[in-house]
Design a protein around this nucleic acid. Structure first.
Lengths: 175, 175
DNA sequence: GGAAGAGGAGAACGGTCGTTCTCCAACGCC
DNA sequence: GGCGTTGGAGAACGACCGTTCTCCTCTTCC
């Protein structure tokens, strides 16, 4: 097992455990057990828990954003496509809301920078999708719909919040 | 200091510390110091940290819901009044999003029951406010707007998310 | 084959957690 | 005043945390 595979295993274990149970509830020893990577190597690759947490969120941010962009890129109607993508996300087993918001709620000001970066990226992505002549507040309103659907789905998973938000978004686009 | 005042001091300290720093980050000793209530009495009134956490959230739920209901009760347009109330909440110093969602994100399935109860109450309150002839999905959509505005404001406090959500809600009501 | 180094397994360390216990001062009752 | 009870202050306890260290087993190079 080379360092790259060790990193993958560590991030897989960290993502599974941190997302499901929260960050403070999961100890480094549990990540060692789940990943099979010895503690010594873990601390060589990630010198402290904080850096493992940041790496977990950064990898998740890259995958999440890339998946959403890819799904929207080929769509005839990009804004509704965002909510269709959300509906599929909400149905994934183990879905438990936005990992970045969960981390921010748990860690507050101690949350890693990538939380803010992730939300700024999402806002920028939505701003790219709105038609050229639309009012500038439209991207903000779409962001509220995306965050609201995600939050509602966190407590009662399933595609319905995304469908309801999509209806509202289509109404906004027709205005 | 009788038991009732001790309880008030404990819940004040718990609310301030748990909401600001998260639940797991705050130890019982810190609550003792902040409240001035001795550890022995703390454990007589709340036999474990878990019960103090539940009591903190339950008191917050009662105050939050009562304040929102009172503000909406006297309004000519109840639905927009919800968002005006949100705008004032988002401007309070130390605002850091919904305490119940933060607790759920941190504790997951171990979160106390009051988290679910709080969200069900909010949905029921919104369902009372929609006009009689409105489509049944309207309350769900308003809930998405409320949660979305709260979530967006958690990361960048201020009244704007509530104003943007209010515009969308008014558009929904006109449909 | 033997020396030297890397890497793994897991014990150990200091600190902090939730919770309990010890000790003592203050008070009511006779 | 003497005595039993209550409650406060804070030490103590066992468990677990993040992190480091020890020890041993392999591999590699000559």
């Amino acid at each position: 097992m080379d360092d790259e595979e060790a990193r993958n295993r560590l991030l897989d274990a960290a993502e599974e455990l941190f997302y499901r149970h929260g960050i403070q509830a999961v100890g480094m020893d549990r990540i060692r057990t789940a990943s099979g990577v010895p503690l010594k190597r873990l601390y060589r690759l990630y010198p402290a828990k904080e850096s493992l947490v940041s790496a977990y969120l950064e990898r998740r941010d890259r995958r999440w954003t890339a998946s959403l962009r890819a799904s929207v890129a080929g769509a005839a109607e990009p804004v509704p496509a965002v909510f269709d993508w959300l509906a599929r996300w909400f149905c994934e087993p183990g879905f438990r809301g936005c990992a970045f918001l969960n981390a921010y709620g748990e860690l507050g000001v101690a949350a890693p920078e990538v939380v803010r970066v992730h939300k700024a990226e999402l806002h920028a992505l939505l701003a790219e999708l709105v038609p050229a002549g639309a009012p500038p507040a439209l991207a903000d309103q779409l962001l509220i719909l995306v965050e609201g659907a995600t939050t509602v789905a966190a407590l009662s998973p399933g595609p319905e919040p995304a469908r309801r938000a999509r209806e509202v978004a289509e109404l906004l686009l027709r205005q």
